[in-house]
Each structure stands twice: as structure tokens, then as C-alpha cells.
């Protein structure tokens, strides 16, 4: 049998799966299910609704591009990290990783492609929100018969991007760390809404904690980014230490475990 047929050999010199192809596939996976599509669509729809709400409810005298930026910034900072988390966890929760990691056995590349595509979606969503905000600013000013106020400078915009991309990476971190959709979303929500309150409460009650809080409270350290303030050296340092605790270390643990975890 085997002697009669030419032996099948594995060719090791063929080109592998390039990273760009993995990114294309991962981007497509974010939109090719109803839940994925509507998650992204909802975040965009909300930024449109936010612009409408600003025009409707913000007093004419305060209408400015900055207000629009703040209005769509909040819903985006909620949705984008969840999109990133689900991109990772669905491979385990939906078990599609069985095929994904069989076709691309170098998991680091797949996970990297997921991070890259999450960031691409975030950047596009923010750009979309900016366009909506700018249109809203022009329309709002026209309705109210005033000239539009463009009070966002380049640094504001840069910080808004950095802040949101950081949020996306936080969601991604919870994804690789927990590898379970429900757990990752809950962990992210607790982290972003419950944890800051607990840390603030602790700081209010215990004086010693109030001193160290700026150094370990990551969301607190990020506030200047979202507000578009110029960060001092100390603020950058606090961003560094708190991000080490809440981002870099859990991310390292998460990536390490993803590379070794059994896919079943």
C-alpha cells in the first residue's frame, strides 16, 4: 500500500499565513454575526443620538465641538472595550478557536491580529464620531443662528484617541485573561464602574490610602487623558504604576495563558 504510493511529505518551505491576512479575517469576524454587527452599529448609532441630544438639550451659548466630543466619548469608551474583549473570548465561548487555532497554530499572531483589528475598529469609530460631532456642531449652530465653536485642539484629539485605545486594550486584556465572554464583560464593567467608586470610598475613609490612590487607581490616572488636560510628569508616572497593576501584569498573565491554554 504505502510502498506503491509516493509518500506524502509536509512542505515546510511554503509561505505561512501572513499577519495582514489574519487581521483581515479578524476584522471580518467582528461584523459577520448579528451580535457583532449590532454591537459595532449600536456604538455608532449612540454617537449619532448623542449629537442629537446635545443639539436638543445643551443651552445655545454652551454649544461647542468640545461638548459633542464629551457626549460621544462616553458611550464609545463603554462599547469599544467590550468589542475587543468579545473578539478574544468568542473563540473559547463559541468554541470557534478549534478551527481558528488549527488554521493558524501560532496563537500569538492570531491574538495580535485581534488586538490590531480591535484598535482599527476603535479608530474608525472615533473618526466616525468626530465627523458626526462636527456635523452636529455645524447643524446645531445653524439652527441656533450662532457661529460654530471649534474648541478642540490637536492635543485633545490625540488624548481622546489614546484614552479610547487604552480602553480597548483593557477590554482585550480581560478577554485574554478570562477567555469567557460573560466573565470578561462583567469584569470590565466592574473594573470601569464599581472599582473606581470603591477606591474613592476607601480613599475618603482611610488617609493612608488617599496618598497611594493616585498611584494605583488606573481609571483615575486616565481622567486627564479624557479631559484633554496636559499631563504633568507625576501624572505620567502615576499612569505608569497604575497601568502596571491593572493592565500590563494581567495582560502578560493573560497572553501567557492564551498561548498555553487547551483549545477544546
Amino acid at each position: 500500500m504505502s510502498a506503491a504510493t509516493s509518500p506524502v511529505t509536509i512542505q515546510t518551505q511554503r509561505p505561512g499565513v501572513p499577519f495582514s491576512r489574519l487581521v483581515t479575517v479578524e476584522l471580518r469576524k467582528m461584523f459577520d454575526t448579528r451580535s457583532g454587527f449590532w454591537l459595532v452599529a449600536t456604538s455608532l448609532i449612540i454617537s449619532v443620538l448623542a449629537a442629537v441630544a446635545v443639539i436638543a438639550f445643551v443651552p445655545d451659548s454652551e454649544l461647542s465641538f468640545g461638548i459633542f466630543g464629551a457626549a460621544f466619548g462616553t458611550p464609545l469608551s463603554l462599547f469599544l472595550p467590550i468589542i475587543a474583549a468579545l473578539a478574544v473570548t468568542s473563540e473559547w465561548s463559541q468554541r470557534s478557536g478549534l478551527v481558528t487555532f488549527t488554521l493558524a497554530p501560532h496563537r500569538g499572531a492570531v491574538i495580535g491580529a485581534k488586538a490590531a483589528s480591535s484598535i482599527i475598529v476603535a479608530v474608525v469609530a472615533i473618526l466616525f464620531a468626530f465627523v458626526v460631532g462636527a456635523l452636529g456642531n455645524v447643524v446645531g449652530a445653524a439652527i441656533n443662528g450662532i457661529s460654530p465653536v471649534w474648541n478642540l485642539d490637536v492635543l485633545d484629539v490625540v488624548y481622546l484617541f489614546i484614552g479610547n485605545i487604552f480602553g480597548v486594550l483593557i477590554g482585550f486584556m480581560f478577554g485574554v485573561l478570562l477567555r469567557n465572554s460573560a466573565a470578561a464583560v462583567v469584569a470590565y464593567l466592574v473594573y470601569s464602574f464599581v472599582l473606581p467608586a470603591i477606591l474613592s470610598l476607601l480613599a475618603a475613609l482611610q488617609e493612608w490610602f488617599a496618598d497611594i490612590q493616585p498611584w494605583i487607581d488606573f481609571s483615575n490616572a486616565q481622567i486627564p487623558l479624557f479631559n484633554g488636560d496636559t499631563l504633568s510628569g507625576e501624572q505620567w508616572a502615576q499612569l505608569g504604576t497604575s497601568s502596571l497593576i491593572w493592565f500590563w501584569i494581567p495582560l502578560a498573565v493573560g497572553v501567557w495563558s492564551v498561548l498555553r491554554a487547551e483549545v477544546k
Binding site: 509536509i10 512542505q11 515546510t12 518551505q13 511554503r14 509561505p15 505561512g16 499565513v17 463559541q94 468554541r95 470557534s96 478557536g97 478549534l98 478551527v99 488549527t102 488554521l103 497554530p105
Partner: peptide, 16 residues
């Protein structure tokens, strides 16, 4: 390299 073109694998048809 590009294992899907050399080895066809089906481990669990429901894992999609």
C-alpha cells in the same frame, strides 16, 4: 506553514 493547505482537520463540527 499554512497548515490548512496540508492537513485537513475536523475536531468538532459543532464548535462553530
Amino acid at each position: 506553514p499554512n497548515p490548512g493547505t496540508q492537513v485537513g482537520v475536523l475536531l468538532d463540527a459543532s464548535a462553530q
